[in-house]
Nucleic acid binder design. Sequence first.
DNA 1: CTTATATATCGAGATGGTTTGATACGACCG
DNA 2: CGGTCGTATCAAACCATCTCGATATATAAG
Lengths: 131, 131
Amino acid sequence: MTESPEPLDPSVERLARLKGDRCKARIAADRLKSLTDQIDEGEIAAEAEVFRAICDPFRLSILKLLRDGELCVCEIMTALDRPQSSTSHHLSILKRAGLVKERKEGKWSRYRLADGAVIEIMKLAEILRGG
Amino acid sequence: MTESPEPLDPSVERLARLKGDRCKARIAADRLKSLTDQIDEGEIAAEAEVFRAICDPFRLSILKLLRDGELCVCEIMTALDRPQSSTSHHLSILKRAGLVKERKEGKWSRYRLADGAVIEIMKLAEILRGG
DNA sequence: CTTATATATCGAGATGGTTTGATACGACCG
DNA sequence: CGGTCGTATCAAACCATCTCGATATATAAG
């Protein structure tokens, strides 16, 4: 036996072939394990929901409109030329994701950005888009 | 005729009822128009693609792994315990969106974050998620 | 040249999201 | 009250995306 006879789990076996050395493989496996341990599945899901809310072109347009201040559903649907039901539905998605806040005033529902971070996150997308 | 007899387009008519005054309606319509004019459909689509790339939990996990440095496909699929074809597919989506870069080395493809802005955008999502 | 390994691509099934008109709910006004 | 207006919700058609096994490509090794 030139190398450790101890049984290794399949993923370490893979890395052993990759590294050509069981010892290095274990170190690599431990490193990967410590990285995955840092990742909480619940956090990932919650953060992904934020991105999922912004990833629709219509919803992103709504957020850009709201940079200049509060608007009601009626104004948003007029500005973006979309059906009322669609506008209301997408606003509810943005609200559930915590990106906008609602303020009821008589029969109107007025929406505004929930946090300055929403503006920041849009700026970063502009940078990443290659502009 | 107590008010302007000029024909107004339907969206201004809507706002006229909303504001109860054709003059105010026109001002509001002009404001909305100037807001929508600032929005370029191509930019919106490009930026939405960035968010669409990050909105999948698996892809977000990949990006979090890559914060600590370059990894090959084999290491990522091992760390996250996913099929190879799926891992490769999602990496191609991240690459197309400009979030990661690829470096070929022999038979390996090593991936890394394309820009520090990717880390920043993930930090903002952590803030927004309510944490 | 044959084999093995790492990665990419393909295809079918399953799943989830978007769109739209229709409908329901609530607030205001006569 | 009854009607109108703003908004929310519903349901169904349509479309995009995720998954995962199978296959293809490419590089290295024997």
